[in-house]
Design a protein around this nucleic acid. Structure first.
Lengths: 185, 185
DNA sequence: ACCTGAACACCGTTCAAGT
DNA sequence: ACCTGAACACCGTTCAAGT
């Protein structure tokens, strides 16, 4: 049921996720979802939660790998960027939807857990002097916001029209190049 | 009519901008808008265009002021951030709505003109050695994306929950501090 | 415990007219 | 040239039942 909504979101965006279409895709009536979710938003939240947990798991695996801290950071950023590229509507739901962000409870917990994984990747870089020794929360926020801005602008088609703007991945590399020299050697 | 839609957007977000509400606010019937706009999206696009032109004008005035290039950049960034803070739904429409971004014609022209003003502010900083001498388009894209990411995350309430994340304005200052030292003296 | 079908209020859009 | 009112298809949500 959550899976059906997720697929519809990928295929046709937010507007395609009608309870009738979700019901039909899951082989039930158009208001069977109301027996499992409070309303449409709660159903979408379950999609967002699954994605938040998937991302958190991916970052956790990267953290446990034997790459250098800096490589782990790059891999983490690329993983989020790939998710945004391959699932733009689901990315939008998870990171841009105001109604989802306003939810308390498990959705908020999942979002914070995902962010915490991300923050640890940044912290490891700082410990290894691969990122500057500025306040950890500020640096994490700046990197995450820059990443999100690149994915968001690019995902909604606002990075091409300009005069030779570079893509998401090169921009991420540029950001890290600009941050790295500020770190003590 | 465009003004009525803009006000409704500010007051109740995208969902509040129904053709019936717009018509009523403008004192006409619920489908009078169809005589002036092709459909609902075209009406929203006219709101976005007005905002794009307003922002472009604001940046143009900042460019013509007697501040230093670096101060003009900071003022420009703060102006966009303020617009995002005071009109989150209109900001979302202008910079995050995929349907608006997909429009060709005058909307695209207005968006590109606004971005061009922004790019000139960055270029002036590079000329004055207040920003590093990297490729101009890449640097402009990175700064704009970072700014957008901060406004986007903060505007949808995703910057507080974390563990002591700093606000939009301090993050912008941090970004410029991190970029500035890379510039030759 | 889980599902269905009818019904309601609301919305974007279309169309035939009205001045 | 600009507007109105009725109508249509669609949607989220509710409710009374069904097994």
């Amino acid at each position: 049921l959550t899976q059906a909504a997720s697929r519809l979101l990928d295929l046709g965006g937010d507007a395609a996720v009608t309870l009738r279409a979700v019901g039909q895709a899951a082989g039930v009536s158009h208001n069977a979802p109301y027996k499992h979710f409070e309303n449409r938003l709660a159903l979408l939240a379950s999609v967002a939660m699954a994605d938040a947990e998937e991302l958190a798991g991916a970052v956790r695996r990267i953290r446990a790998s034997d790459m250098s801290p800096r490589e782990r950071l790059m891999e983490t950023l690329m993983t989020v960027a790939r998710f945004g590229r391959e699932h733009p509507s689901r990315y939008r739901l998870l990171f841009e939807d105001p109604a989802i962000a306003a939810l308390e409870g498990p959705m908020k917990q999942a979002a914070m857990a995902t962010f915490a994984e991300f923050a640890e990747v940044v912290r490891d870089c700082q410990t290894a002097n691969a990122l500057p020794a500025m306040p950890h929360a500020a640096l994490t926020g700046l990197i995450f916001a820059s990443l999100h801005g690149l994915i968001s602008l690019s995902g909604s088609g606002r990075m091409q029209p300009g005069k030779g703007l570079i893509g998401v991945n090169p921009s991420i590399e540029l950001l890290l190049d600009v941050l790295a020299p500020a770190a003590p050697r």
